[in-house]
Amino acid sequence: MADNRIEPPPGMVEKRGSALWLTHLLMIAGVLVIFFPIWLAFVASTHTQQEIAQAPMPVLPGSHLIENYTRALFSGVNVPVATMLMNSMVMALGIALGKIAISLLSAFAIVYFRFPGRRFFFWMIFLTLMLPVEVRIVPTYQVVAGFGLLNSYSGLILPLIASATATFLFRQFFLTVPDELAEAARVDGARPMRFFLDILLPMSRTNIAALFVILFIYGWNQYLWPLLITTNPEMNTIVMGLKQMFPSGDDIADWPVIMATSILAMVPPVIVVISMQKLFIRGLVDSEK
């Protein structure tokens, strides 16, 4: 039998190999550039104040890791970091889950229910993208204060759980679902919520995962809104607490504790991204829903 394989031109394999190595070297260099400041923060969190102040600054971990992280977690500056981490976790989870739940139901109603003004209400929701939190923060604060939700988890979460972006994305996905599925569910006697729970929700798994990662980080990094509605230090989030640790005036910064707090503040978002990495990527790039 004749061999019909096409041989590559001379030099193609070598060029492909060199280009592959160059790509990997550039990626490694980029990772090192991004990771180096994080490494310095971690190293600073394992040394004493005197060791950090010496020139040149150490680039290898010291022997005070447990001591500094224990002081940060259970002592802190104004309030223990463990308390602030818990507040940020509750806020980020509440915002992410609340946005996803409301957006799923809103998109489901807009796509699968026929009612007057359906398109109008969708575009009204979409137009709220032009009104960021900073624009509506004063009336939102007045409403929250009127309901007595200052210094509470409800006050931190409820004003931020509506999401026009998530509603739009879920609507666009639901529009790609074949109408035959809804017809088959109707023939089988499934009510609308049964169709939503048994068919649409499992099909939306990758979209939900991708949005959860994005919305969790959005909630975790909130600074202005928690700063406005919390006056009790026990309700401080980790981003607020980290900003308050920096000295003012002639105060001396406790850099080991500040750096330990910075590292601790990065841990939960990193865990969420790593644990949901596959679903996150599929939710962004997978075309087969």
Score class of each variant (00 low, 15 high):
M193Y: 04
G219S: 10
V135F: 13
P116A: 03
A182K: 03
A184C: 04
D179A: 14
V135Y: 14
P178Q: 05
H64T: 07
I6W: 05
F195M: 07
P132W: 08
G189L: 01
L65K: 06
G94W: 04
V270N: 03
V177Q: 10
L284W: 05
P56H: 02
K99N: 15
P269S: 02
I252E: 10
G148P: 14
P178H: 11
L93I: 12
V267N: 01
Y223A: 12
I125C: 14
L181S: 11
F280W: 06
K15C: 00
L32P: 07
G148M: 14
T128Y: 06
D3V: 09
H64D: 11
L227G: 02
I100K: 13
G283D: 02
G94M: 04
S63L: 14
V59E: 04
T261D: 07
N236T: 12
S152T: 14
M57T: 01
P132M: 13
T23H: 15
L26W: 13
I161P: 15
M1H: 09
A209I: 15
T23G: 15
S45P: 00
I263P: 01
A185C: 08
R5E: 13
R71A: 05
A82I: 14
P10K: 15
M193H: 06
V59L: 11
L242M: 08
I217T: 13
S88C: 10
L169Y: 05
L228I: 08
V187T: 09
D3T: 03
F74W: 15
V135C: 13
E14R: 14
S154D: 06
L105F: 07
P256C: 14
L85K: 13
L93E: 06
V133C: 05
S106D: 08
N236H: 11
I6G: 05
F42A: 05
V285K: 02
G17R: 04
P192Y: 07
D251Q: 11
I102S: 11
A184R: 02
V177A: 07
D254H: 13
V31P: 09
Q142V: 08
G17A: 03
F115W: 05
M130W: 05
E134V: 08
D188I: 05
N232D: 14
M91C: 00
V135G: 15
L160M: 14
S106L: 10
E183W: 02
Q54S: 01
P80T: 03
G189Y: 01
M259D: 04
V273P: 09
A182I: 03
T128I: 10
P202I: 03
P58W: 02
W225K: 02
V31A: 15
L242D: 00
G146F: 12
L200K: 04
G17C: 01
L40E: 02
R5H: 10
A29C: 15
F74N: 13
Y69G: 06
F36E: 00
W39Y: 03
S262I: 06
M12I: 11
F174N: 07
R136P: 03
A185G: 02
D286L: 03
